[in-house]
Amino acid sequence: MRSLLRRLPIETYVISFTVALWIALSLATPNFLTESNISNMMRQTSIAAIVAIGVMCTIVIAGIDLSVGSVVAFCGVLFAQMCAHGLALPLAALITLAAGLLVGATNAFAIGRLGIPAFIVTLAGLQVYRGLALLLSGGMTVGGLPPSVKDFARGTTILPNLFWAMLAVGVAVHYLLRYTRTGRYLYAMGSNAEATRRQGINTFRITMVAYVLSSSLAALAGILLVSRLSIASPSMANAYELQAIAAAVVGGASLFGGRGTVLGAVVGAVLFTTMSNAAVLLSVDPFWEMVLEGLLIALVVYLDNLQKRRQSGG
């Protein structure tokens, strides 16, 4: 029994905990199990999960991406400005995604070619892209968007469209990680970069894949967030990077690299969304919510550390 428990993937625990939280919430408050609350949570989760999936890819190669929150804001503002100035939606979306791709390529270049630690590169990015978001918006909320902008995120096709977007991203990245050679090399590199290089694998290319995915998905999240809010604020998506990293790690990704799954990142995102939803419904002071979230992140990283140590010890 104990060995069975140990063999269960970490997702199982997180899912059980989340479901328990759901049951508790539906007993504690009549407002939890309502259609509007659930579809609202699904929308919120979807955007958070898309960011978390991208960040998880950088964690798998033993990297990190701290810039995603700022990239969401920067790309969101960029997208909104283009829409406000009358650019066709698909074109604006395409340009925004290209911008995200460029951000990721720049990060990968600085990390893989210039040899600057990922932590420093993306910490700089966190500041740079928040600054660019402020510059691009003049420090003001960008509004007055054409009504078609919000059609996608507010729309529902049986389930909220945003949920389908997350599902599509999830399936695509899961396929990449689990079934392709590139995916396997992401894990290999996070596990032992030197050994991976010695097997003739181009680790710079792998670094590129991870960071481009992370930034492009952040750009996509920016577009979706603007669609959901129908405005873009330069201060939006604040601290998304922390939630995304926490979601990935709660879902079994190791900050030491070599481990992490799409399902885990999604489950982690669901947990964090549930927690903030619970805080709202039970009218917990939002400041306390921040404290609790921070403590949960610390706890999860501690558990990750413990597991790594036990593994290398045995």
Binding site: Y179, R181, R184, A188, Q199
Partner: peptide, 30 residues
């Protein structure tokens, strides 16, 4: 420094030289 710890034995032996097949002649997979 020779092996990737988080990969299986087989994945290590084949690292960098994985055999690939295709779903429906389209999507490649290891």
């Amino acid at each position: 420094l020779a092996l990737a710890d988080d990969l299986s034995i087989g994945a290590n032996i084949f690292l960098g030289r994985e055999p690939v097949r295709r779903f429906l002649g389209l999507l490649p997979y290891v």
